[in-house]
Amino acid sequence: MAMGLRRPSAARRAPLPGTDPGEASAGASRIGSWALALWLLLLTAVVVVLDALTGSDLPIIPLLVVLPALASVFCTVRQTTGVAVWVTLVVVGSRIASTGAFWDVVFLIGFAALASALGVVACAARIRHATEMARLRTAAVALQRQILRPLPVTTRQVCVHGLYEPIEEDRFVGGDIYEVVQSPHGTRVIIGDVQGKGLPAIGTGFAALGAFREAAVREPELAAVAGAVEDAVVRHNTFSAETGETERFVTALLLGFDGGDRVQVVNCGHLPPLLLHDGAVSAVTLERTSVPLGMADLGGEARAAEWVGFPPGAALLVFTDGVTEARDVTGAFYPFDERLRQWAGLEPDQVLKALQDDLEAFSGGVRRDDVAVLVLSSPPDGERAAVSLEAPSADGSTK
């Protein structure tokens, strides 16, 4: 099972090609017309009987005006209009047949007509909002595909499996970012967490990813790649400040794979990786941790790379704090290290599947932050050879 970029639930409900997204949203909440008519007749009969039993001292039929309001929540505009017309006719007919004061009858009829009309207006507003949200979802899916690479992906030096879950269904792209780039200097990987959420955070993340994609191919040194991303975040913050937006920083971990038994790492204020090897989990100790991207002016030292062990058959697991800071209903933090030890002997895609299910069960489906996890392992010999053969050379031909 290949575990890659998990699409949010709303994306899985995307309309079929050629279908208007608003119609698809409205259709999802449609109640069968025959079922609606049956319930409407039953409720009307009950209210009419109660009205007859209570007499003129306590008129019950005007209470039918709540039915268009209820229909506006669950039904289409056409169905809500039918309910509103039916309720208005029943109220008008019952009041005309009554012997009450003229102005009392006029008031009740006017009130029923107004309430019914408001129900139809509310239903139309709901459908319009659903249409707009469906179109925004479609645009967000396209934006996500441009910003975040679908996983898994295999390069000449590493195989990357991943899990990405934004905090909100209708946001799709959160503050967590990642990228994998095959370069002349090996495979470069970044995982990061942009401060904040929403469109401003997406803009900062896009600036960081764009700079990483270019610098990963251009720069021979991983520290220089981090410097290029730093400059991009600073430039974006300068522009944001001029337009009144809040300046943001990015915690990030940059890794460089050359196919050997060591990995180069630059830590920019991010959580260190974990090593999965021989069925055990161990923390990777990083001696050089610098400030987050966008805050280099506050750091006293230049960013530097360091090497960590990456033995054959091992996997590096990198993640954002949406995993470690997940909480259950009592407020207890997710025991990530303890749970990971149970899955250390599994394949990368199985580890991610187990983590995804366990996080969902632990948090009760309520998450406070985005979740991004990458499992980086050496590609099988067959896949490594296939990628090497298909990789384009500098002149655009294949090797």
Rank of each mutant, 00 (worst) to 15 (best):
V265K: 12
Q264A: 11
A280S: 14
S290R: 09
G203K: 11
D258M: 04
F249W: 06
R288A: 11
L274C: 00
A232L: 13
L274S: 03
S183Y: 08
L222H: 01
S282N: 10
T243W: 00
V194P: 01
V250N: 04
A211H: 12
E247H: 01
G256E: 12
F212V: 07
L271P: 04
V234G: 09
S240Y: 01
V266A: 13
C268V: 07
T187W: 05
A226R: 04
V189Q: 09
G227I: 13
L222V: 04
F212H: 07
T187R: 08
T246V: 13
N237V: 11
P220E: 12
S240N: 08
P220N: 12
S183T: 14
P272G: 10
G227H: 08
C268Q: 14
V194C: 00
A211R: 10
E230L: 10
I202V: 15
T187G: 07
S282R: 15
T285R: 13
E245P: 00
A232M: 13
V291P: 07
V281T: 12
P184N: 06
S183N: 08
N237K: 09
D278A: 14
T251M: 09
L253Q: 05
E221G: 03
R218H: 07
H185D: 14
A223L: 04
T251Q: 03
V234M: 14
A232I: 12
S183Q: 02
V189S: 05
T243L: 08
I191M: 11
R213M: 09
P272K: 07
R213W: 05
L253S: 03
L271R: 09
F212C: 13
T285S: 13
D231S: 15
V250I: 13
V189P: 05
V266T: 13
L253K: 03
V291Q: 12
L253M: 11
L254D: 06
L274P: 00
H185Y: 15
T285V: 15
A241V: 07
V263A: 15
G186A: 09
T238F: 10
L276N: 05
S240F: 03
L254H: 11
Q195D: 02
A252Y: 00
A241C: 08
K197M: 03
R235V: 12
E245C: 02
A211T: 09
V233C: 02
H185C: 05
G260C: 07
H270W: 08
V217G: 03
E245Y: 01
G256F: 00
E242H: 11
E242F: 02
E242G: 05
A241P: 01
V250Y: 04
R248F: 00
V233H: 06
A215F: 06
T238M: 12
A283R: 14
G244R: 04
L199H: 01
T289V: 15
Q195P: 03
F239M: 12
T289C: 10
A215V: 08
A208D: 04
D258V: 05
P292E: 06
F257H: 11
A228Y: 01
G269C: 06
V284G: 01
V233M: 07
E247F: 01
D231C: 09
A224M: 04
E219W: 04
E247K: 07
I177N: 05
F249Y: 12
P200V: 11
V229M: 05
L222P: 00
